[in-house]
Nucleic acid binder design. Structure first.
Length: 207
DNA sequence: ATCCTGCTGC
DNA sequence: GCAGCTGGAT
């Protein structure tokens, strides 16, 4: 069965970005920001060979600000990216840094909270960890018909899914897709949503 | 005007 | 728990 692909890395996860470096840079940039804006900046960085963490660390914060000016909170994010790039250099490269045992160090860095840390570990580092996003909390809360915290929703998912990289990435992609397309904070578009057959909010008007 | 795959510091 | 960060797109 040659067409059954078990290698999760050959799919266009994380908006189609391929390298751990671009995924990592975009993870900083995308916070409270439209994905489309992030892609534009990543494309520009790539043209200038700045799509690698080591190359970013050679820039000053001021120059980095200029490169990402079109991004929401660009000053804050330039500072955080610069600090992260320097830290990666200390730790002996990005690949070595994106491992589960480094999670506490990731979380200790400015600009990396739970969601970003686990997104990096899953999509850039290929670790079986599920990111606890606001999308996840919202969709899972409505489908299950009870108020969940982000970490609560994450716990349920990690309990139920097989410990499989492909499943984790696919489920995350599904949650994000549904969150963006239908499951808005206000006035969710439940009629169009393809989860409505199994959603408690839709069927019982809870939450 | 409002929205956008958060995190920090208070 | 919540204001602030900070700007482009619609």
């Amino acid at each position: 069965m040659g067409w059954i692909v078990s290698d999760a890395s050959s799919f266009e996860w994380w908006g189609g970005l391929k390298t751990a470096h671009e995924i990592t840079i975009s993870a900083f940039l995308v916070q409270m920001t439209r994905w489309e804006s992030v892609v534009k900046v990543i494309n520009k960085l790539r043209e200038k060979q700045l799509n690698k963490i080591e190359n970013l660390s050679k820039l000053s914060v001021e120059d980095l600000e200029k490169e990402i000016r079109s991004i929401n909170f660009y000053k804050t994010k330039a500072r955080r990216l610069k600090a992260f790039a320097d830290k990666v250099a200390e730790e002996g490269g990005l690949e070595n840094f994106l491992k589960i045992e480094k999670r506490p160090i990731l979380l200790s860095m400015e600009g990396i909270g739970e969601e970003t840390a686990d997104s990096l570990l899953l999509f850039a580092g290929n670790n079986v960890i599920f990111p606890q996003s606001e999308y996840l909390r919202r969709v899972m809360s409505r489908v299950l018909g009870k108020k969940l915290t982000k970490s609560g929703a994450k716990q349920i998912v990690e309990e139920k899914l097989n410990k499989d990289l492909f499943e984790y990435k696919l489920f995350h992609a599904g949650i994000v897709s549904i969150g963006k397309a239908f499951c808005y904070t206000n006035n969710p578009n439940c009629d169009k949503c393809f989860l409505k057959p199994v959603c408690r909010k839709y069927n019982y008007e809870t939450l």
